[in-house]
Design a protein around this nucleic acid. Structure first.
Lengths: 362, 362
DNA sequence: AAATTTCCGGAGAACGTTTTCCCGAGGTAG
DNA sequence: CTACCTCGGGAAAACGTTCTCCGGAAATTT
């Protein structure tokens, strides 16, 4: 009957129901209540019943903050990415949110505006909030490295989609080489003989791996073929611009390092009056929503987004297994997971041409 | 010289540096350190210097969890949305993240998979984590209502983009009526006389407001004109299907309730051999990234995303002003902010037709 | 010069959990 | 009958902050 604290806040009576209240109502100690609710230790059947009854009569909700402080685990993971507006990320974010929530963990989102400095700041903020782990898509292979390495020293950290230099942290990504190989096989099988590549410069692993795989694949198909490739960035604008550079050579296939480039290329090619896919095939990478909407719909490589997310979550939780190591830690080897992509064939690479007259190949 | 706790975790030596450590190093009490670092109360110059020196020599980072527990504020806001993959949301999320981070608040992201039950669960989880406030884009006007109202009773809550019934919570959204009016004026000014509307059914406020505004606008322009409208949902597929229903009537403008519908309509119209914009104009709403990429590029209504975010953040912080109310709370009137949209004219509504021959209007 | 105020700083109580002790009762084994 | 478990339960110490008291010294007022 003494001092309750009915905190009348701007909104409502927030008189937080605590363990103490439940304990009082159930006529036992807070320790017992905690044990019943957390199931930490067996408790007498009758007591347990009383506690549970009191708990949901009072509509008790454990204070996660207090729990986090005491148990040194917030049940929270930070998700750091370059730019949520990059069309490839939303579906990945969605899957990650789902799989993490299913494990009872909450997602702290940080958007870096494609800037390594912001990225470092965000990582710092998340660590200050004591996230249990970090899921990170680095902005830049080189310039993200320092901050990422520092963070990885403090919490389990998994790199997603892009790498960040060798040995920095666990990572999971699509097998870019395999994806590019699928594209090249498909093009070869449908009679395309003079492909060219619209890629992205820079050290970002996706950019580098895809252009390397293209080069390797083309060489394998026909060692004598000249390799035609131009490099820009992962944008629609670059796709448009790049077409002006390569179209004079009349390739019969334009292999793009991602769907945005492909969309731009497609647009420009049509402006120039080229027949896609009759005269020239166009392929993308990632299978972002836009790919299916382009006209003609874009043949592309689908990333196994759900699997990427699941795998990332798995790496995150498996990590702390190695405990009780000497202070400097024996540099546990990083784990790298590569998942197989899937080729999605759509109209933009149809063999005979889906609009316009079929071109008489071979 | 006694028991430090060099917690050797899976990863590194996490010997968390606490206020006590800093205090010891600076030769003062934890209270003083806290005061210096938080600037809560003036402290002697020399002491302050010593504290600061010790703090950054030890690389002290305050434990936000402990801080949150004590100060009853986590510095965290929950962002609940129907589906991050909806192309309109990423840019909004990005702006929200930025403005909130600028205020030192972190964003806890929840994706509801377009399901009200999941939404209720996510809201509950966020409240359990003691978010300071909730930013919420409701999944469904009716079915989200109960959970939203309950949440609004506990923390400041701002509804974004969509409403959730009258009087439930503060809300900020674009002025859909004004946007639709801009579209209709533009079409009228460029000589379109027989518009029709591809909308979305359902009670979602964006759907309802846009179709009401269309009806009102058309009636204002020409009271005798028959109102042609078909309703489906906010999807590309519906846009495609809807065209088959309305094209036989040969409208000279197709006004769509959002960009996805417009993209679908555009696609199908082209398949049918219609000349856009020569024969028929197409307009969208939202200005998602896809709008500029469509072919022809889509005339649409741009939402002031940055302003929406800023306004939402403002409402969030302004809220707790009304304190010390009697327990039930005097039902503070909810505030509703409507922001003016902007018309973005692109090729899909060009007057004379941008491709094909100009049509001889008037 | 005494009384009052200001200033600086420390001790310690919260915040709401989890968890480690500890204790008494009852059961079983020696 | 004593010794030793197990079992259910409570008291209280953490976790790392913030913040309220309190006290002494110096500065100001009366």
């Amino acid at each position: 009957m003494q001092g309750r604290r009915p905190v009348v806040e701007g909104h409502a009576v927030v008189a937080e129901v605590t363990l103490r209240d439940v304990a009082r109502a159930a006529g036992c100690s807070v320790a017992t209540v905690s044990r019943v609710l957390a199931g930490t230790r067996p408790v007498g059947a009758e007591t347990a019943r009383a506690v549970r009854e009191a708990a949901d009569r009072l509509d008790y909700r454990p204070n996660e903050v207090a729990r986090a402080l005491r148990s040194r685990s917030t049940g929270t993971v930070g998700l750091v990415l370059p730019q949520i507006t990059n069309p490839f990320f939303p579906s990945l974010v969605r899957e990650l949110e789902h799989v993490l929530h299913a494990e009872g963990r909450a997602v702290l989102l940080a958007d870096c505006d494609d800037d390594p400095e912001t990225e470092a700041a965000r990582i710092g903020a998340l660590l200050g909030r004591r996230v249990d782990a970090l899921l990170l898509i680095p902005v830049d292979e080189r310039r993200s490295r320092e901050a990422v390495a520092a963070a990885a020293a403090q919490v389990p950290l998994v790199l997603l989609d892009r790498g960040c230099g060798p040995g920095v942290a666990d990572s999971v990504a699509v097998d870019n080489a395999a994806g590019m190989a699928l594209v090249l096989e498909h093009l070869a099988a449908t009679g395309r003989r003079r492909p060219c590549f619209l890629g992205a410069a820079g050290t970002a692993s996706a950019a580098a791996e895809r252009r390397a795989a293209y080069a390797a694949g083309v060489a394998a198909l026909d060692p004598s073929a000249p390799e035609r490739a131009v490099l820009g960035d992962f944008s629609v604008e670059w796709g448009r611009a790049a077409v002006d550079r390569i179209w004079p050579a009349r390739p019969d296939a334009v292999v793009c390092a991602n769907d945005l480039i492909a969309a731009g290329a497609l647009q420009r090619l049509r402006q120039l009056g080229a027949d896609v896919p009759g005269e020239v095939a166009v392929t993308g990478f990632d299978d972002v929503p836009l790919a299916g909407l382009a006209d003609p719909a874009l043949t592309t490589v689908r990333q196994p987004v759900a699997e990427l997310a699941a795998e990332a979550a798995r790496l995150l939780t498996r990590r702390p297994a190695t405990a009780t190591a000497p202070v400097p830690g024996p540099r546990r080897p990083v784990r790298t997971v590569r998942l197989a992509p899937e080729l999605v064939v759509r109209a933009s690479s149809a063999p005979g041409g889906v609009r316009g007259e079929p071109c008489a190949t071979s």
